[in-house]
Write a protein that binds this DNA or RNA. Structure first.
Length: 421
RNA sequence: GGAGAAGUGGCCGAGUAGGCUGAAGGCGGCACCCUGCUAAGGUGUUAGGUGGAGUAAUCUGCCUCGAGGGUUCGAAUCCCUCCUUCUCCGCCA
């Protein structure tokens, strides 16, 4: 959520930045409501102040045994006026809040400007893509051949885009999870979190999934609970509506969770294999920082994710997303893309975003500044470290040998207990 | 799921015949003072949100005592609903 004060004070600037995202975006409506809202609040405040003092007067008069009938009647009338104004106040507050909740974050001024992903900029390419002499199989064929994943039966017990890991496949998936968590918690210094995967609407609103992206999520029928689309949601919200000490920052957390996405609107896209599915595993990195710490911590977080790809010896590149391609809540975002032979292209495996105080404002994530003693909003950021299913697919495809076996990356062997499949 | 108890500021904890209490007191935090060694003492200060005035320091209104409604001239204090926690029972991995 954007700060209404900033919108009020720099409307042209905010408008300009938002239009970099999408020319249709505008803050004019919120501004109009804001003016009206403040006017009503001032009026209501004045009446409330009057009621307060008059009521106290009644108390004193009664103590002195004076008759208070007329003044009581007067204040009762006042109460009616207040009630009317308060209704207006509530309505305008609500309206303003809803508008603010549906306005995306302002993109960082430094990021590439463009309407869509064609304006994204490749920042670096790591690892050489070697095309082998034999023809590489796609993971959706190879995993079935090797009985690592059962797509058909997954569909039978759930729906399309569901699947079952089996045997060494299940073991490999679990190995990847453990490997990621171990490196992040030891080498990179993150605290491990194992959060609920069902969260309430407030948490979903806090990180920006609600109210705009309701149709992307699975929701419980009779309860205010949603299946998380990413661990970002529960982990970022852990300290919601709290005031942290500056000493607690940066707060670095990592969490493994399954993630659930309805993939509404992506019919026909990535229909085969593990790339786009309704349930997948992910190890997430989340940080709460001060504004000053944020740029550096974001670079570090991205590096922490990249290092996973390097340790696994997977070729990848880092792409900086343009204003038209970054997510709703993000101010700046790097995508890490891993080489996938079956796509003959790089495919997103991690998305490392900074949100500024956009999420913090929604979630009530604050800290007290040591220097000034004042309360500020935290900055939040997160990134996949990494998406496990896509890592699985990348390993299977990139590490397949001519003889049909799949080598296991060295760093994973102690986790799998085998060195090839 | 059933019965009972409770939910106050960073923490602990006063506050029920409704009014001058946004809230005593303590702890903790911060600032200053005093004291020649790690200690102790004194004084002051210390909630969030949202408006208004001012370049600013700052001044000032309103809202908030789990959340939301209601009664009343006036509610932390009374009533209703919900949430959470604790105890007992039931169920259960």
């Amino acid at each position: 959520m954007l700060d209404i004060k900033i919108i009020r004070e720099n409307p042209e600037k905010v408008n300009e930045l938002l239009k970099r995202r999408n020319p249709e975006l505008s803050i004019n409506e919120v501004l109009d409501i804001d003016v009206e809202r403040r006017k009503v609040q001032t009026q209501a405040d004045e009446l409330r102040a009057k009621r307060k003092s008059e009521s106290q007067k009644i108390g004193l008069m009664k103590k002195n045994g004076e008759n208070t009938d007329s003044i009581q009647e007067e204040v009762r009338q006042l109460g009616d006026d207040i009630k009317n104004l308060e209704e207006k106040e509530v309505e305008l507050n609500e309206k303003q809040k809803n508008l603010l909740l549906s306005i995306p974050n302002m993109p960082d001024e430094t990021i590439p400007i463009g309407a869509d992903d064609s304006a994204n900029v490749v920042r670096k390419v790591v690892g050489e893509v070697v095309k082998p002499s034999f023809e590489q199989k796609a993971h959706w064929d190879l995993t079935v051949e090797k009985d690592l994943v059962d797509f058909e039966r997954g569909v039978k017990i759930s729906q399309s885009r569901f699947y079952i890991y089996k045997g060494k496949g299940a073991r490999l998936e679990r190995a990847i999870i453990n490997f990621f968590l171990d490196v992040h918690t030891t080498k990179h210094g993150y605290e491990e979190i194992l959060p609920p995967v069902l969260v309430n609407g407030a948490a979903m609103t806090g990180t920006g999934q609600l109210p705009k992206f309701k149709e992307d999520m699975y929701k419980c029928v009779d309860e205010d609970l949603y299946l998380i689309p990413t661990a970002e949601v529960p982990v970022t919200n852990i300290y919601c509506n709290e005031i942290l000490s500056e000493d607690d920052l940066p707060k670095c957390m990592t969490a493994y969770t399954p993630c659930f996405r309805r993939e509404a609107g992506s019919a026909g896209k990535d229909t085969r294999g593990l790339i786009r599915v309704h349930q997948f595993n992910k190890v997430e990195l989340v940080k709460l920082t001060t504004p000053e710490q944020a740029p550096e911590e974001h670079e570090k977080l991205t590096r922490d994710a990249e290092e996973m790809l390097e340790m696994l010896e997977l070729p990848y590149r880092r792409v900086e997303l343009s204003t038209g391609d970054i997510g709703f809540s993000a101010r700046k975002c790097y995508d890490l893309e891993v080489w996938l032979p079956s796509y003959n292209n790089y495919k997103e495996i991690s998305s490392c975003s900074v949100f500024g105080d956009f999420q913090a404002r929604r979630a009530g994530l604050k800290y007290r500044s040591k220097e000034t003693g004042k309360v500020n909003y935290c900055y939040t950021m997160n990134g996949s470290g990494l998406a496990v299913g896509r890592t699985f697919a990348a390993i299977v495809e990139n590490f397949q040998q001519e003889d049909g076996t799949i080598l296991i990356p060295k760093v994973l062997q102690q986790y799998t207990g085998f060195d090839r499949i």
